[in-house]
């Protein structure tokens, strides 16, 4: 795409300026009207702004929204994960670290002794969830406030992830 030649009226600039002012002024008065109507209790349905007042009001997430990971559990409360390393392999950010241990049940074979995700590095691509053959890792907690005072605290361990 090259840049388009401006037409004569556009190059005059002043007409375009007034068009722009008309547009923003239109928004101003439209929104002002809605704000006033809400304040006076006349029309509570129309909002003058698209803002969510965040800590009090939350935007509803879509069901497939990728939020903080969790490890799913079996009926007896142990992790479903069989430490197959699929997620660790597929992770583009290399932020999963798993140490496998021998599981007493020969049908399960292995279980994770350690399962760390460095959320400070994770790009929230969801590949780990896609790769898992056991449906053992999911990103459906709805937790998005992941913050810490140090990088170390951003590493979530298996105990945190199982909750």
């Amino acid at each position: 795409m090259g840049s388009r030649e401006l037409s004569f009226t556009e190059r005059l600039y002043i007409i375009e300026v007034f068009k722009g002012l008309w547009l923003t002024g239109h928004h101003f008065f439209g929104n002002m009207k809605r704000h006033l109507a809400r304040q006076l209790g006349l029309n509570r349905l129309k909002k003058g702004a698209v803002t969510f007042q965040y800590p009090e009001e939350r935007r509803p997430f879509s069901p497939r929204y990728r939020s903080r990971h969790r490890l799913t559990k079996r009926d007896n409360g142990s992790p479903r994960c069989v430490a197959c390393m699929m997620c660790e392999t597929v992770c583009p950010a290399h932020c999963i670290y798993i140490v496998a241990g021998e599981h007493p049940d020969p049908n399960i074979e292995k279980f994770p002794v350690r399962f760390d995700i460095d959320l400070g590095v994770c790009v929230f691509c969801g590949f780990c969830v896609e790769a898992c053959p056991e449906d053992a890792i999911r990103m459906d907690t709805g937790i998005v406030e992941i913050a810490a005072y140090s990088r170390k605290e951003m590493i979530y361990h298996i105990e945190d992830l199982l909750q």
Partner: peptide, 10 residues
Amino acid sequence: KQSAVMQDRI
């Protein structure tokens, strides 16, 4: 406030 109202913010 005015810029906010013009841009559909609060």
